[in-house]
Design a binder for these strands. Structure first.
Lengths: 198, 198, 198, 198
DNA sequence: AATGAATGAGCCTTCATTCAT
DNA sequence: AATGAATGAAGGCTCATTCAT
């Protein structure tokens, strides 16, 4: 009788190894050997579990998406008003978990890959749509039909701060990024003299 | 420094071939053979002219920077007021020349590469600083000490729309991107008749 | 020698799976996984039963030989005269069972492998000797000392039709192959009413 | 100015290296490294010249075909009567050049590969058709409408002796093979008491 | 008995780079 | 100046085989 399958743990370990490798390297140009080595297994095993490099990278991208979604869902659950939800969505994108250097680097690398790979593009579109829909849903009660455009602006700001992170060296300054986005929201919402809504 | 015997037009042809290759491929993962082939020369010659792939890519990045700078300088020269300068800077970043798919793709690829390559990072920082300084310089007379933060926001918006372009398929919708940024500027400048929700 | 716990039907299933794989693939270049998969077991089990790929292939070759021998023995048992025996031997080699595409393909693959593998060569020599001996034994009463040479010719014809089968696409035309060999035999035996051109 | 291209010689050297490798190995299961090593070049160069392993192997098969055709054409040119042509064709197939162990081994390996690879099958069919056509053309004046069937028999005999060569160890005994085929021809032609026609 | 897990070895292929001409 | 020739290094992938359970 074979021992219970260890598949899920190994898969997860490999995905995390891939994430780290991509994060450190700042690009998808990582080798299966590197990834496998970080996970403490042979390159052949990575193929065994994922079928190929592309599949492993896609699984890694999915993992990123899923982590963001989970944190977003949790944050939304803790919010009771549309205004709170709005800030929660922004905050999640700059949380300690999501805005780690490795994670940001991976996001960018995947964005670039999306220009070439249809599966990646599809995946990132899912993320983009969800972000937009979350933002617009929270905005609608506050600004009505303008919700869509404002959601687009906020999404661009978020991604903009992500990409500009690539040029920075030290620790991430999430505070000022969040402050700028919150200020924008406050302006569009006609709020005055206060940008705090967390 | 190229030897006097090296024809500048050859260098330029190779750089443009590299740009096209990167643009089409959507990544720096292009081969010297591909680039050389597009320029109608042998890969060996590309080495002869640039010393190596990295140097050719760096020269290509410089080319991109220079083109943007030239168009910016020209646009600024046509502007007479700070407010006009502000819009001019934004407009240039979404001009037909700069926002071509190939160019956008190249920018993104270089951004990602900047996470790994110090020379690339240095180059992109020059661009980022110049953009920020141009924006802040135009903003200062209008908003005073807030100029820096607003410049940062505008820069993030610009780059944000660039990166989100990676997910789109069809023609670029520069109009709505510009509109959103202009709306943001108008808001921050307290201009009347803006697009705030009625 | 298989351990008593090893089920003979498992061995047989694996051998037949190997035969099918080789037949379909038209070469010995089949994987243990493929073979094991066809037999519905794990590759590890195939090793458990045979010790290694070479051993499994050798067992498969033996299986082929044995099947041919059995059919030959049965056919000879049904023959009462040397002349009948001669035709029976030829007929068996083009019987529906032996001349199946998969079987023919496997024979050829093994022939080629025999050039490299001593065990395979040994096995095929056994087959060749037996065929020759069967033919010569039947021929001796009919043609005397010429039996050996004629046996060689018939054997070459048989194998020749086998190898040429590799180039054909559709169903096997065994009839014409048998007719040609029978015609040759008739000629050598000086039988009247043969197919010699009028 | 680049030196005159060395391509043809290198190509030929690589093809011959491939032929030797296949001949020694008795199978197409040879590595590019092995082949390249025999030609005294790097594996990368073999790709440079042929594009891939399959292409090199196909070129090798073509080389085999061409060599046989050339020798056949020359032999036919030296023959003045149909009867002589017939013997010439047979003789060529067992000439010192064609019946070398390496060449025979390669033929067999290609036959087996033909079961899998459509390009190889196509090539071998060309050979088969040409052989049949040459034989039938020479036979027609001698036996009339029976030419086709007899040509088939002779072709089967030739290929049969080729494949049976795989089981032999020592030097090739071409004489007895040729004698048997010539005897068959003599019989079909109604000749008596003499099998010499070279 | 039987299996999934795991690996080492090897192969094909690509590519930046060098060199002789 | 320019090129084809040539290569070393590296990467993805496959597969027979072993092993713990």
């Amino acid at each position: 009788m074979p021992r219970p399958t260890m598949l899920p743990q190994r898969r997860k370990a490999l995905i995390e190894a891939a994430l780290n490798a991509i994060g450190e390297q700042g690009s998808l140009d990582v080798t299966m050997s590197d990834i496998a080595g970080r996970a403490g297994v042979s390159p052949a095993l990575a193929h065994h579990y994922f079928g190929g490099k592309d599949d492993l990278l896609e699984a890694t991208m999915r993992h990123l998406l899923q982590a963001l979604r989970q944190e977003t869902v949790a944050a939304l659950a803790r919010s009771s008003t549309p205004r709170e939800r709005l800030s929660a969505i922004v905050a999640v994108n700059f949380s300690a978990l999501q805005f780690r250097p490795a994670t940001v680097a991976a996001w960018l690398a995947f964005y670039v890959e999306a220009q070439r790979s249809t599966p990646m593009r599809r995946l990132l579109r899912v993320y983009a749509r969800r972000l937009h829909s979350n933002l617009a849903f929270a905005l609608r009660p506050l600004v009505g039909h303008e919700a869509g455009v404002i959601a687009e602006a906020i999404a661009a700001l978020i991604d903009g701060f992500y990409i500009r992170r690539a040029l920075k060296d030290g620790e991430a300054d999430t505070a000022s990024a969040v402050a700028i986005i919150e200020d924008y929201i406050a302006l569009k919402l006609g709020e005055v003299g206060d940008t705090r809504h967390a």
